[in-house]
């Protein structure tokens, strides 16, 4: 009787513990997010107090006099991200479209898998390949072609001098890295288009391209935007691939061929040896990057959730 009684003291207890334990682990996701923002903000406070709003608009980076500004890193991040998006989005659109809409099965399956594997390759491999293979390639072939043959060096934003490093090279490598991600989401979007729609358009005499452009694209336009957001989120914070090829100088971007830096590259380069106010400034840069990335992610998630809901209602 005693044993039985002991067993039935509180049969709910282990289950309640289980529930609390799992709930705690799940809420950790939110806790870590809040903790990350809080921690970076706390560590950035000395720099925020010292430089105030000026930090965001100043372009000096002067370790001797301990004056730091975020502008070169912030604009560098914007420029590389913009180049990457401009290159990667149209290419992934056209590749995804081809793979889903018109490629034969024996071709589209292996290529899709290869692209997915490409997404798994660590960024440092791209960085190394960029440094040892792509930078010399840019210097000897692409940049002379663009600058001298096509005469683009007379334009304001291309710049007469080139050495292989710089924003354009970094942007191209970045584009290569985010391409598989954007392409994967776009493939899913194209696959969601109901076949009935496609068939009726073909039946009405439309060509492949017309079906894609007028039917599939319009049906999935919002999903495609979500794909761009995801690519953007990845591009903004990428470190290693850019670190190797951007040139790493604290200058405002003057031309596409010029060297510069990004927020992530500045952090990777300077954080190890930084002390005092420099370290705090770097934390503030990290905070800027975090808030940007969070903003992009929150927008992307809200957008995708809305689409999913609307698709579900249809």
């Amino acid at each position: 009787m005693a044993i039985l009684k002991k067993q039935f003291v509180n049969p709910e207890l282990p289950d309640r513990l289980f529930r609390v334990l799992t709930a705690g682990a799940a809420w950790l996701a939110m806790l870590l997010l809040v903790g990350l923002v809080g921690q970076l903000f706390y560590c950035a406070m000395p720099a925020v107090r010292r430089f105030g709003f000026r930090f965001l608009v100043a372009s000096e980076w002067d370790p001797v006099n301990n004056i730091y500004g975020a502008l070169p890193a912030v604009t560098g991040t914007l420029v590389t991200t913009a180049i990457a998006i401009v290159i990667a989005v149209p290419i992934s659109f056209i590749v995804a479209m081809y793979l889903v809409e018109s490629a034969p099965h024996w071709l589209s399956v292996p290529i899709s898998h290869t692209l997915d594997l490409l997404a798994a390759i660590p960024s440092i491999i791209y960085g190394m390949w960029g440094l040892f293979v792509f930078v010399p390639f840019m210097q000897t072939y692409i940049q002379p072609l663009l600058a001298d043959r096509l005469g683009l060096k007379h334009l304001a934003f291309f710049g007469p001098e080139y050495n292989g490093f710089g924003f354009l090279t970094a942007g191209i490598i970045l584009a290569l890295m985010i391409l598989p991600f954007i392409c994967a989401v776009m493939r899913d979007v194209f696959r969601l288009v109901p076949n009935v729609l496609r068939e009726s358009a073909f039946g009405a005499g439309a060509t492949h391209w017309e079906v894609t452009y007028d039917i599939a694209l319009k049906y999935g336009a919002r999903g495609l935007l979500g794909a761009v957001f995801l690519g953007l989120g990845r591009a903004v914070g990428e470190t290693m691939a850019i670190l190797f090829v951007i040139g790493n100088v604290q200058n405002l971007p003057r031309s596409l061929f010029g060297s510069g830096t990004t927020i992530a590259a500045t952090l990777a380069n300077n954080f190890g040896e930084a002390e005092g106010i420099l370290k705090s400034s770097l934390f503030e840069l990290g905070l800027i990057l975090l808030l940007t990335a969070l903003g992009i992610q929150v927008l992307a998630q809200l957008w995708l959730n809305r689409i999913r809901k609307q698709m579900g209602e249809q």
Binding site: L32, L33, L36, L40, G237, T239, L289, A293, Q297
Partner: peptide, 8 residues
């Protein structure tokens, strides 16, 4: 959280 840059 999955979208946070890994360096952060």
């Amino acid at each position: 959280m999955m979208g946070i840059p890994s360096i952060l």
